[in-house]
Design a protein around this nucleic acid. Structure first.
Lengths: 309, 309
DNA sequence: GTTCGTTCGATCATATATCAACAAAAACAT
DNA sequence: ATGTTTTTGTTGATATATGATCGAACGAAC
C-alpha cells in the first residue's frame, strides 16, 4: 500500500505557487476581483501538473496524483481520460504514461542507463518537489551565480535552470552537473572524490574550492527540519551545505512537507542561518513559530489546492 | 550457479557476457534492493525498464528482473510474453534476449555544431571501441590509480572498471564519473567549469588539481593519429591529456582504426610520449613505422575475437 | 538414456483499478 | 435569494492485474 501524505481537508492552504503567472494572478484575484472561469482553471491546473510530471518522469499513478493533488481518484481518472482524448498521454491500468509522439524532446539522459533508480526515487512526492522547484526557479530570477545542493529536489531545480544563459551554477553533485550539461548554463564543480548515492563531491579540497567564492543565491536540500534547525544524513554533504550557507547572499532551503519534524544524523545549521524556506504545505505550529522567530520567509508551493477563504 | 542465459546469436551485440548478473543489473541502473519501501511499478514502466536492459545488454533473466523490480516472477513472465507478442524481444528459458530488428532509435539530443554528437559517436565503431576497452581493462589489471580521459572509448572502459575495488579513478569527464558512480571504484574529479559535449572539466584549476598527482596508468582518447603524433579537437581537453601523459607510469592511447591518418585541431603529443597503443586493426605502414621507431607497443584488439572471461 | 534442479504456464484466490450511475457540492445565471 | 449547470465525490458492480500453487516441460550434468 502506497501511502501519501494526509492532510486535513479543512486545512487552509496558501495560493498555489506552482502556476504560471497568468494562472496565479487569476487565482490570487479570487476574493475580490474578476471571478470568471475559475472552475475551468482548477481543472486546467491539474492537467498542467499531470503533464508536467509525465514530461519529467514518463509515468504516473492515479493514486499518487490523487493524493498529492488532494482530489479523488475518480477526478484524476476523468482528467486522464480527457487528456488521453487530446492525445497528450496514454492511459494505463493504474496510471498513465507519456504518449510517444509527445512534442517535447525527451531528455536524452532519460534514455541512458544509470538514471532509472534515481528516477524511481524521485517519483516520491514528485508533484510537491516539482512545485518547490518551480518556486525556487522564480526566486532565482536575476541571480547570476547560483549554488545548488545535492538531492532530488535540487535536481528538479537544476533541470529548470539548465537553459539559463549567462548564469554560473555551482554544484557539488555530479548528477546535477550531468543533467545540467545538456543546457546552456555554465556549470562548475569542485574537485575531489565523488561519493555515495547522491554522487556528491566532498572533502577538504572540495570545500576549499567553493569556500572562496560568493554566490548570489544558494539552494539547499535537507533530509529533516525541526525547530532546532536543518539536518542531513551525510557528514560531507553537510559541510558543503554550510559552505553554501555561509557564502551566499540569499540562502534558500528546499524542504517538502514530509521532512517536517524529521531529524537526521547531522545538524547542519540553525534556522537563523537561512532566509527562505520553500515547501509545499504549512509547517506544523512549533516549526512555524521557530521559523517566524528566526525571520525565515516561508513560501508554500502547493502542487494544487483549492483555496479556502 | 544458475546462470543459464546464453546468447547463441549476435555475440557481437552483447560483449558484456563476462559480467555476472549482479553487475549487469547494476550497470543497467536498476534500483537497489530496497526491500523496505514498496513502490508500485506500473506495468508500462516495467516494460520500459525491461527493454532498456535488453537494449543495453541483450539479455536478462526472469528471476533478477523480478527481484529487482519487486514483483513476482509470474508477473515478469507475463510481461515478457506480452513484449514478445509485440515483437520487442525474444524469450528464452530463464529470461529473454533482444530481438534483432528492435533497433529503435534512442532519443537523439540536439547535436552541438562542430563535432558529431556524443551519442552518434558512441554508435560509430561501437564494436571496435568495445574491444579496445576490453583490452585496456586487461592492461589496467593491478593498477591502483588510473587516469581516464574523456571520450566514448574511455567511457566504455570506465564501465568495465567501475566495480574494481581499492582502485582510484581520476577523470576529467563528468560523464565518466556519472557512470562510474554506480560502482565500487573510487572516483575523483578535478574542480572547475564543465564544458562541451564531452562534459569535461577543464581549465587552469582542473589542470592544477591533477598535475600534482601520479598515476599508475593513463588511458587517453584521441581524435586523430598520424606519424607526427596524436591530435584532439579541444584545447582544454588536450591540456588535460598532456597532464595525464606527463604524470603516469604507463601511458596508453586508445584509438580505433578510423582515426588513423586523421589530423585534428590540436597536436597533443608525439608518439614518443606514450607507451602503448590499443587499436582494432593494423595501422597503415607509415604509422606502423613511426610507432616502432617511437618504441610504442601496439596491441590489436579484434572485435571478432570472442571475449570470454 | 537417467537424474536432478530449474523454469514454465494454467489455474485460482486476492488485491486493485475502472467505470457507470447517482449524490453532493460548487459555480453560474437569473 | 432560487434553480440550473458544471464539477466533483461516492457507491457498487465489473474488469484487470498480481501472486501463489503445482504439475509438466525443459536444460544440464552424468
Amino acid at each position: 500500500m502506497k501511502l501519501s501524505i494526509d492532510r486535513p481537508a479543512t486545512e487552509c492552504a496558501a495560493p498555489d505557487r506552482n502556476l504560471n503567472r497568468a494562472e496565479r494572478i487569476r487565482l490570487a484575484g479570487w476574493p475580490g476581483e474578476k471571478t470568471g472561469e475559475k472552475t475551468k482553471v482548477l481543472a486546467q491546473v491539474r492537467h498542467s501538473r499531470i503533464l508536467d510530471v509525465l514530461a519529467e518522469f514518463g509515468a504516473l499513478s492515479v493514486s499518487d496524483v490523487a493524493g498529492q493533488l488532494g482530489v479523488s481518484e475518480m477526478t484524476v481518472r476523468r482528467d486522464l481520460a480527457e487528456l488521453e482524448k487530446e492525445g497528450k498521454l496514454a492511459r494505463t491500468h493504474g496510471g498513465a504514461v507519456r504518449s510517444e509522439q509527445s512534442a517535447e524532446p525527451v531528455s536524452a539522459p532519460a534514455a541512458l542507463p544509470g538514471e532509472p533508480s534515481f528516477q524511481l526515487r524521485t517519483v516520491k512526492n514528485a508533484l510537491a518537489k516539482q512545485a518547490i522547484a518551480v518556486e525556487a526557479e522564480t526566486l532565482s530570477a536575476g541571480a547570476r551565480t547560483i549554488a545548488l545542493d545535492v538531492g532530488t529536489t535540487a535536481l528538479l531545480l537544476a533541470r529548470r535552470l539548465q537553459d539559463r544563459q549567462h548564469t554560473k551554477i555551482f554544484t557539488s553533485s555530479v548528477r546535477n552537473a550531468f543533467f545540467l550539461g545538456e543546457g546552456l548554463a555554465e556549470v562548475y564543480l569542485p574537485g575531489g572524490r565523488m561519493r555515495g548515492d547522491e554522487m556528491s563531491i566532498s572533502g577538504p579540497a572540495a570545500i576549499a574550492d567553493f569556500n572562496t567564492l560568493w554566490f548570489d543565491i544558494a539552494f539547499i536540500g535537507i533530509s529533516g527540519l525541526t525547530a532546532q534547525g536543518i539536518y542531513d544524513y551525510s557528514f560531507d554533504d553537510a559541510e558543503m551545505k554550510r559552505v553554501f550557507l555561509s557564502r551566499s547572499t540569499r540562502k534558500v532551503v528546499l524542504c517538502d512537507a514530509s521532512k517536517f519534524s524529521c531529524m537526521s544524523l547531522v545538524h547542519v545549521a540553525d534556522l537563523e542561518q537561512f532566509d527562505v524556506l520553500i515547501t509545499d504545505a504549512e509547517p506544523p505550529g512549533d516549526i512555524a513559530k521557530a521559523l517566524a522567530a528566526a525571520e525565515v520567509e516561508v513560501r508554500i508551493a502547493s502542487p494544487a489546492r483549492k483555496m479556502a477563504s
